[in-house]
Simulated scan of single mutants.
Amino acid sequence: MSGGGRSTVARALENVGYYVVDNLPQALMIDMAELAFAAGGSARRTAMVLDVRSRAFSTDLAGAIKALRERGFQPQVVFVDADTDVLIRRFESVRRPHPMQGEGRLSDGIAAERELLREAREQADVFIDTSHLNVNQLRARVEEMFAAEDTRRLRVTVLSFGFKYGLPPDADFVVDARFLPNPYWVPELRDRSGREQEVSRYVLSQRGAVTFVETLARLLNATAPGFEREGKRYVTIAVGCTGGKHRSVAIAEELARRLREGRMAASAQHRDLGRE
């Protein structure tokens, strides 16, 4: 139903790895399904979003779903709805008319849409009533139903960088590793990077380095459940030093390793490595 939360459901499906096709005419469902099947891999997790806007092409949604099944596909139909008074409040809050309202009242458009979609609603595999759900609750419910376990996990990127090249604009956390002695001033380490064992050993052996990494790991472990509840799937923690070659790289690699040991999905990336 228009106003039921269809867009939120579509975004939630994208979050868990579905390829989402919005406002697809029913007549193209079989073509889209065959394209997804032929593409293989992740494309087979395709979600087709259909709504009253497609009525210009066909009003037989139930028939289109039946045709899919007859061709050997196994579609799962999710119908998103809400109480009429809730739908009215939602349309009024955004000050837009119902797509089937015409010259009538808002309630007339909602009633017409209910009748048009009655058979599809009755045949739905999953029915979601969003009357008493907020956006985050709806998203969480959809992800719980359709996500593979690993797609619901928070993914952490530990990004090393050099302060002299500027702050990373996409960082959620920025921390400064310049309190540690700089390997640049050690002649045998100057031309090496923090990814090499000799530099990493030097950096991590300095006073406060391990405590620094452990503190960051605790911070991320403490905040990860909250980020996941709020629908955030990616977090970037940026670790900076002067040039982004030694200290920040070694710290980023070690932090990512520890997060992975704690069963978090974490990877290290190095923005400025090689710029000097």
Rank of each mutant, 00 (worst) to 15 (best):
V9C: 01
A10D: 00
D22E: 11
M32S: 11
A33N: 12
A36N: 04
A36L: 07
G40L: 06
M48G: 01
V52Q: 01
A56P: 01
E70A: 13
Q76Y: 07
V80F: 00
F91N: 04
E92C: 04
E92Y: 10
R96A: 11
P97A: 03
H98V: 06
E103V: 08
R105E: 15
R105M: 14
S107N: 05
E113N: 07
E115H: 07
L117N: 00
E119W: 08
V126D: 10
I128Y: 02
I128C: 00
H132V: 11
L133R: 06
E143L: 06
F146D: 03
A148Y: 13
L154T: 09
L159P: 05
S160D: 08
K164Y: 13
L167Y: 06
D170R: 11
A171W: 05
D172Q: 02
F179Q: 13
P181Y: 14
V186A: 06
L189Q: 09
S193N: 15
Q197T: 15
Q197G: 09
E198G: 05
E198P: 01
L204K: 10
S205R: 08
G208I: 06
T211I: 00
V213D: 06
V213I: 15
L216S: 04
A222R: 14
G231F: 01
T236P: 08
G240V: 03
G243L: 04
G244S: 07
H246Q: 03
S248M: 12
E253M: 09
E253A: 12
R257Y: 11
A266I: 11
S267E: 15
D272Y: 06
L273F: 09
G274L: 14
R275D: 04
R275S: 08
R275E: 09
